[in-house]
């Protein structure tokens, strides 16, 4: 187990390095920040000055070498826009994205597991069909559309919650609700399928022959076995949320890392983009290790 985690860590570090190279060079291909950043009537001299100040006049390879050198000292450079260390800007945004992702995934996991398991147990019944339809709709509805409709109905129409921004707990309701729908639909379907096959396993028959009651039969005997494929999907969905829910954060004006990333890309704020990507990658890498640990925790055969 420890060996496996170690191997995963090394592989993740290598891919982080690859990612860093890729993003650095790709971002330089999109346009000149001096043109974008300075006013439209800026003189060539002003542009030169700007480039010199930020090291943008150096050869690309030298810019990259400097960048790597700084990274090794945990220095992601300054944000061009905000004149503050890029890493601070990113971590600040993460302070919004992280709770958003955690609360959403927490809700997804609990509801999807309970509903998916019960649906599998009552396979073919009314409850099963209802859950299947709801989850299918949830998994296939586009979130930008749901977000806009939700604003129209609940904010503008009914006036229950604010349209956008942050500040009160009410501001969180719509972003969480909209982000919840897709992963919920997907995870319910995976839970249902996985539980269906797990419920057909011989050990479930043994439990029934022992006189185990239905609830422990489902949630103690079967669920732990049925969770293994589910964890993979949960990890996948959580990764998408950690990336910052770009669309939903933008629509709701939520100052998370997704919105920050879009804004920084539009403004050619390279350092922020790079810092955001690196921090996200580290977060996903940590989460993958947690998932590996969860596998081992759930299934002793992996542990041994």
């Amino acid at each position: 187990m420890t060996k496996m985690i170690g191997q995963r860590a090394i592989a993740s570090l290598l891919s982080l390095l690859g990612l860093m190279i890729l993003v650095f060079f790709l971002s330089r291909l999109t346009g000149d920040p001096a043109v974008l950043f300075l006013p439209i009537d800026a003189t060539e001299e002003m542009k030169q000055q700007f480039r010199a100040l930020h090291g943008l006049d150096l050869p690309l390879i030298e810019q990259f070498a400097r960048y790597v050198w700084d990274l090794l000292h945990f220095d992601f450079g300054e944000s061009l826009r905000k004149a503050r260390p890029a890493i601070d800007v990113v971590l600040e945004a993460y302070a919004w994205t992280l709770p958003l992702a955690l609360i959403t995934m927490g809700l997804v996991i609990t509801t999807a597991i309970v509903l998916g398991s019960l649906a599998a147990f009552n396979v073919g019944g009314f409850f099963d069909r209802l859950v299947s339809i709801v989850s299918l709709v949830g998994a296939s509805a586009p979130d930008f559309w749901i977000a806009i409709v939700a604003i129209v109905v609940f904010s503008i129409g009914l006036g229950w919650v604010p349209t956008s921004g942050v500040g009160t707990p009410l501001h969180w309701v719509l972003p969480i609700a909209v982000l919840f729908i897709r992963p919920f639909g997907l995870v319910v379907q995976v839970v249902r399928g996985s539980m269906l096959s797990a419920l057909g396993a011989p050990y479930v028959k043994t439990a029934r022959a022992k006189g185990v009651k239905n609830l422990p039969l489902i949630f103690v005997h079967t669920l732990r076995n049925g969770m293994l494929p589910v964890i993979t999907v949960i990890g996948d969905q959580a990764a998408a949320l950690l990336n910052g829910a770009v669309i939903v954060e933008t629509i709701f004006g939520f100052p998370g890392v997704g919105k920050l990333m879009i804004d920084s890309i539009l403004q050619r704020d390279f350092n922020v983009v790079l810092a955001a990507i690196m921090v996200t990658a580290v977060a996903i890498f940590i989460m993958n290790i947690l998932i590996d640990l969860a596998y081992g925790l759930l299934d002793p055969r992996i542990r041994h």
Binding site: P202, Y203, A207, R224, N225, D299, R301
Partner: peptide, 12 residues
């Protein structure tokens, strides 16, 4: 049952 490996729960 016939197959005690399958009929015992692998994770407990």
């Amino acid at each position: 049952f016939q197959d005690p490996l399958g009929h015992l729960n692998p994770v407990y």
